[in-house]
Design a protein around this nucleic acid. Structure first.
Lengths: 128, 128
DNA sequence: CCGGATCCCTTTGGATACTG
DNA sequence: CAGTATCCAAAGGGATCCGG
């Protein structure tokens, strides 16, 4: 758990990795999208919105975001408990870039799809 | 191999996923960076530059990029064989967005680092 | 020299059950 | 309600061997 995929110092060389590794997981981006409107959302609400995320992954992903300072977690000392999450300024600035990527995907998805459809594997040495 | 993490249609709902899933793997971004200058590089050269990538992952990642139309692969019919790779226009346009992310990471890494350092885990229910 | 095939360990993440 | 703990299946990815 300490080292993220036994990086032999790769993360140190690239500050990039520390950021992109988070993008890699399935849920980070989805959660950022939900929070990007600036709304404060509680655990259950996020769970409802993201639909098929398990409580485990929701908690874990939110923890990571919080740890990186992209999200603030606010615990109400009530019973039943209530915890809600908001994107920080840093989170918003990060999301700006991510949304650039999303836009690109949106605009070019047809090209990527076309490329994938047209693609023929280089045929392994064995004909089959 | 057919379905990327048994997506129950998530990839269909989000064209985004199809793109971001690729970013998730360890090497895609590194390769894009190497190729982003517009240089045409051969397999071995890429291998040298990325340093600790295994030939397997290099081949696989390049295949994915090629499949998506971000990279072109050119095989010289010589012996010994020689294969080289170049970023396509699509690849360059994609990289623009990715580099936005990289810049962000560069500019804000100190904030993220600070947040991580300051972070104290919410302490599990069990005191220990 | 390029890169496929195989083996195998590591990590990720889903389902479920349980607690403050 | 908001998580945590445990168990388990699937994917990621390194090492190695091999063939064109």
């Amino acid at each position: 758990m300490a080292l993220h995929r036994q990086n032999s110092g790769l993360a140190e060389k690239c500050p990039i990795r520390g950021v992109l590794d988070r993008l890699g997981d399935r849920w980070t981006v989805l959660l950022l999208i939900e929070l990007s409107s600036g709304q404060t959302l509680r655990f259950t609400e996020l769970r409802r919105r993201v639909e098929d995320i398990s409580p485990r992954m929701l908690a874990q992903t939110l923890r990571h975001l919080e740890e990186d300072g992209l999200v603030v977690r606010h615990v109400h000392a009530t019973v039943p408990p209530r915890v809600d999450y908001t994107l920080t300024a840093l989170g918003h600035s990060f999301f700006e870039r991510v949304s650039g990527l999303i836009d690109w995907a949106d605009q070019h998805q047809h090209l990527v799809r076309a490329a994938r459809a047209a693609y023929v594997a280089p045929a392994a040495n064995a004909p089959m």
